[in-house]
């Protein structure tokens, strides 16, 4: 959380600098972070695809885990941020938290999709199936659907003055569901089937492999923070655009009144 705050707070300084106004949503802080992310990702891919050895059990399929695991972590963090921001929306009632909640949910969806896709591609050679009704998979899939619903709700409520509040409530409800879904799917799976997930535990993670995984995790988190900053700014700009349109609408509405100022004399003389 703290890293996000500093990222956002650092931004205005660079915008206020006497340089011409920025073309897009970038600021010095976000650019540095973006470069770091790209470098780390490049290094991570290099390690993941080339330098790290194939796993003893899983052969090259283990390379998928360097994407799969970090994206899962980022997705959960992103949804956690959405839930936290949703609570803050109801408490502080500020636009900022609402936009953070929305931005983080969207990024969470992207990373969840990556996580599920790589998980399936890993599962096919290792388990023999793309999908198994394992507790963690089921929870993650439901999580994806829950937050897709959340984003759909945001779209449906565009322009509604209560959007922030209603979406915050929906976000909190989606989040309440997660532990319950997790518990239920865990029980459900233990009752129905067993062993499928054991393979991962047996294989020893070596030094290079662990390092690859770590790099990708850091890259993933940096990428998340970067995307959150940019996505937040895009949402912020979209709100400003609406506001400008709104100011114009007010002016237009008032000119309507000016035009009709002549009319009341007729109406009132009629009335008297």
């Amino acid at each position: 959380m703290t890293s996000i705050d500093t990222g956002l707070r650092a931004a205005p300084k660079t915008v206020d600098a006497p340089t011409p106004a920025p073309i897009g949503t970038g600021s010095r802080g976000s650019r540095i972070l973006g470069v770091i992310t790209l470098a780390l990702t490049g290094l991570g891919v290099l390690y993941g695809l080339v330098i790290s050895p194939p796993d003893a059990n899983q052969s090259n399929a283990a390379r998928l885990l360097y994407i799969h695991v970090p994206s899962a972590i980022v997705a959960y963090v992103a949804f956690g941020v959405t839930a936290f921001a949703s609570i803050m929306v109801l408490w502080k009632k500020t636009e900022t938290w609402d936009l953070i909640a929305a931005s983080s949910a969207e990024i969470g969806i992207v990373f969840t999709m990556v996580c599920l896709a790589t998980g399936m591609l890993w599962g096919r050679p290792i388990w023999g199936v793309f999908w198994t009704w394992d507790a963690r998979l089921t929870t993650t899939a439901l999580l994806l659907v829950l937050f897709v619903g959340y984003v759909a709700l945001r779209r449906a409520l565009a322009g509604n003055p209560n959007r922030a509040k209603w979406c915050a409530i929906a976000g909190i409800f989606a989040a309440i569901d997660v532990p319950i879904v997790h518990e239920s799917t865990t029980w459900w799976v233990t009752l129905h089937q067993g062993q499928t997930v054991r393979l991962l535990g047996e294989s020893q993670i070596g030094g290079t492999m662990l390092f690859s995984l770590l790099i990708m995790m850091v890259a993933g988190m940096c990428g998340y923070v970067w995307m959150l900053i940019i996505r937040f700014r895009v949402a912020f700009l979209a709100e400003r655009v609406d506001e400008t349109a709104f100011d114009a609408a007010i002016a237009e509405r008032r000119s309507e009144a000016e035009k009709s100022r002549a009319v009341p004399t007729i109406a009132t003389s009629e009335a008297q």
Binding site: V45, S59, N60, A61, R63, H68, V114, L121, R124, P125
Partner: peptide, 13 residues
Amino acid sequence: DFWEYVIAGYAFA
């Protein structure tokens, strides 16, 4: 090796 799966996964991401 499972390179096709690995490439597909990385490409998708």
